[in-house]
Amino acid sequence: MMDQDILTITNMSFNFINSPGNTDLRVLDNISLTMAQGEFISIVGPSGCGKTTLLNIIAGFIHGYDGQFSYLGQSITSPSPERAVVFQSAVLFPWLTVYGNIAYGLKQAGLKKAAINEIVKDYLGLVQMVGFEDYYPEQLSGGMQQRVALARVLALQPKILLMDEPFAGLDAQTRLNMQELLIDITKKQSASVVFVTHDVEEAIYLSNRVYVMSKRPGKVIKQIKVPFTGIRHLSLRNTKPFITLKADIWDLLVPSSQGIPARQLKLVSK
């Protein structure tokens, strides 16, 4: 039996109202998207294509869309720890320590101190931040902050992890490390992830499927199944199928009418 869909979006459109000139700004146009339990999907698209808006709707931060949208067969009315969000900047609470930040959601859930202590310890280990309990966010590097942000939501055992360009603000090497960490964690936790990014390579490397969106108003141009199975390693990025897929997606994002198809450019540079 096929995994059950955890998320179903059918013909969703969304307008920002009251934009300058008092005209509605169409941000999402007729989006359809599904996600199976345990699946890792990425949404790639140019800046301003509405991918963050889409993520915010799934999170429950934004309302007032047209079309159908259901999560485990129900409609969404408000944010919930079941659909945890990792933002582009870590958005840790600066007045709490690393420990306090990870414990925050657990406290809201009404857990006992001893239980919280246990869970925080586990997740500090999972994101490789043991020993930093008493540090304040401002004392940490961007990559470390994102690890804590990841730990504080994973500790709540979300059904879906919503990630909004979480590694975009990190330097190249840290980004690679974080991607490896994420692959490792999603394998351990068998989490379902919606990952928004403008980094095509990152999208392919991490996902089972990639949704490619057009620039505003955002439409799904194509849905691509990533053919690589098994455990992924960094070396995958240099294989021919990976590079070809990357070039194909770039062609979708930058229409070939603007010049030489990206695939040819890639071959030249290789």
């Binding site: 944010p79 959601g105 709540l156």
Partner: peptide, 12 residues
């Protein structure tokens, strides 16, 4: 963003 983060983490 702080309020969104708080809501998402389950704060009423």
């Amino acid at each position: 963003t702080y309020l969104r983060a708080g809501e998402m983490l389950g704060a009423n």
